[in-house]
């Protein structure tokens, strides 16, 4: 036994195995990345017009009504854009005014989303809140905050700001967070301007339309439903 070198104790064998395993896993990850990248690329206005469901819709999704409803086929909630066709798919028809308009062009909506995404980073949202569940745990998750019952008509947050639509209420809150204390733990004033607030709300509305495979589960269940019932 002592004279015969077994393959199992040969360093070169394990070195090669490590290289092969790593290489195989890496190649698989890269291949999956190509597939995933194609599926998560942002949609366009034409997609929305033509009723093409994208995992990440184009920026003009802010012109539409967005809800979050149970899909019987997929077994979890999915974002529904512009009305439900009855089987858990979006109809892309019902519009919803965003700061008084529902006809933002692709450029206008894209610019708002760009401003909002920049704002979400420069204002450091992620080090208190979670976005798509990632970030810090000091403040509520923002993934579907656009659909939160507190911001809807009759919701506590909208009532507190004295505004009549949720986008205006959210924008007002973002500009003067510490004058609207909702909890002992308050959001600090981050110097957010009116324009930046509008961008941030557009960013939040867009984020609520992303298909997150049913995260968060049962969102807004306690208030009956988010979908306006």
């Amino acid at each position: 036994m002592a004279n015969k070198v077994s393959v199992w104790t040969d360093n070169r064998f394990w070195q090669r195995s490590a290289a092969w395993v790593t290489g195989f896993a890496a190649v698989l990850l890269i291949w999956l990345t190509f597939d995933t990248s194609a599926q998560i690329s942002m949609g366009t206005d034409a997609d929305l017009q033509n009723g093409v469901t994208k995992r990440v819709p184009g920026p003009t999704v802010i012109n539409y009504k967005i809800t979050y409803e149970m899909s019987a086929k997929r077994g979890h909630e999915v974002p529904i854009i512009g009305g439900n066709d009855g089987s858990g798919m979006s109809l892309f028809q019902e519009k919803e005014k965003f700061f008084g308009r529902d006809d933002y062009s692709e450029e206008e909506a894209g610019a708002l989303l760009h401003l909002g995404k920049l704002g979400s980073q420069t204002k450091n949202c992620m080090n208190c809140h979670t976005l798509l569940g990632n970030g810090a745990y000091y403040a509520p998750d923002l993934t579907k905050s656009w659909l939160d019952p507190a911001w809807q008509d009759g919701g506590t947050m909208q009532a507190m700001t004295g505004k009549s639509t949720k986008e205006e209420a959210m924008a007002e809150f973002l500009q003067h967070p510490s004058t609207y204390p909702t909890h002992a733990r308050m959001m600090p004033d981050l110097g957010i301007t009116a324009e930046e607030a509008k961008g941030l709300v557009a960013f939040l509305k867009h984020m609520s339309s992303i298909d997150t495979n049913g995260f968060p589960r049962n969102f807004g269940k306690i208030q009956g439903a988010v979908n306006g019932k």
């Binding site: 086929k73 997929r74 077994g75």
Partner: peptide, 10 residues
């Protein structure tokens, strides 16, 4: 893949 994985609540 993607069918009824999450149907039931815990």
């Amino acid at each position: 893949i993607g069918e009824v994985v999450m149907r039931q609540d815990i």
